[in-house]
Amino acid sequence: MSDRDDELAAKLVHLRGEGLEKGDPLALPLTLTSMYHLPGDPAPGVPGYGRAENPTWEALEAALSLIEDAPALAFPSGMAAISAALFAVVKAGDRIVIPTDGYYTTRLLADRFLAKLGVTVVTRPTLDMARGGFEGVALVFLETPSNPGLDVCDLAGLCEAVRAAGGVSIVDNTTMTPFGQRPLELGADVVVASDTKAPGGHSDVLMGHVASRDAAFMEEVAAWRKLAGGIPGPFEAWMLHRSLETLPLRFERMCDSAEVIAARLAEHPAVRNLRYPGLADDPAHLMAKAQMTRFGFLIGLELESADAAERFINGCGLLAAATSFGGVHSSAERRARWGDDVAEGFVRLSVGTEPVEALWAALDAALRG
């Protein structure tokens, strides 16, 4: 990690301890309540109702704000965060651009619901997001590296072009976390992420967040959460807060291992069309090197057929056969089963925190069958 990331990681571990009074618990307390003691008229800064305020959320949001270097709001899933960001901006008659090769649920949300509200939804591949320009576009949604193909687009250039055209840029940074890529510093207006993935890290919690330095936008997002009711549970917020403190360690280990394994997979006779931005000959490498601080823990590999992919996944003792990614357990899935525009034998491999040599031995054995 960079010196700045090291500094953030240190502050993250000690953030809870700042301002504690003698005798206060060092660990974050879990506040489970729907009501607060509220005699008389409401007062500014005094909690009133569980749909609007919770101290556990606030502690989590302070940690998320620290690592994003921007105000952040927590949500009960990544899609809840994406929905809030979209509905805070988009209105009837607007035109928005969404990637064809990003997370498919974002496209489904736009096609099934935003389109019915009079929003024109335009889709473009990640590598061609600028084609056609952004004049008359209210919002551009970006995801880089793309999921699952791992194409990388020029965030700084695209965000500048969107802003010049009068639009808002939203970047899904789920695959990288703030310790691998910082979209707000590259010019993005808004960052969204599924914290279900690496920030949670243990495959036991659904959470997400929105971050932005635009105060008016964040007020709209907060209003959407309060009025629509898409609020995080306090226990889930507590779990994510606990996991965040080890995110820098886990992310660094996962990225280190992915770099080793990707290089070996590139030479493996069973593997075709390997994608990993950290490889010097990957089409995304130069752009990734310019805008990412790490190359991530996701690897795309193509095997000869769907059957070969399933045999590999199910035959590896150190792979969880599951959707999602970013956990301490390495996992893999054949993405064509969800309708992604990839080869039938394409596998998205998420490298976990297992010792790298043990993981490689298991992967190699499964590939050789």
Rank of each mutant, 00 (worst) to 15 (best):
P125H: 00
T126L: 01
T126D: 01
L127Y: 07
D128H: 14
M129D: 10
A130S: 15
R131E: 08
F134K: 02
F134Y: 02
G136N: 06
V137W: 00
V137L: 03
A138R: 15
A138E: 01
V140Q: 00
V140A: 01
V140E: 01
L142R: 08
T144F: 14
T144H: 01
T144L: 04
G149A: 11
G149C: 10
G149Y: 04
D151P: 07
D151L: 11
L155Q: 01
A156G: 13
G157M: 04
C159N: 07
A161W: 01
R163N: 03
G167F: 11
S169H: 02
T175W: 11
T175Y: 11
T177S: 14
P178F: 13
P178W: 05
G180I: 01
G180H: 00
G180M: 00
Q181W: 03
R182L: 11
R182C: 06
P183M: 01
P183N: 07
E185A: 15
A188K: 03
V190P: 05
V190C: 05
V191N: 07
S194C: 14
S194L: 04
D195K: 14
D195Y: 14
T196R: 15
T196S: 09
K197M: 11
G201N: 14
G201Q: 04
H202C: 12
D204T: 13
D204V: 10
V205H: 09
V210W: 11
V210E: 11
A211M: 04
S212A: 11
D214W: 05
A215K: 12
A216Q: 12
A216F: 08
E219L: 06
E219K: 11
V221A: 11
A222C: 04
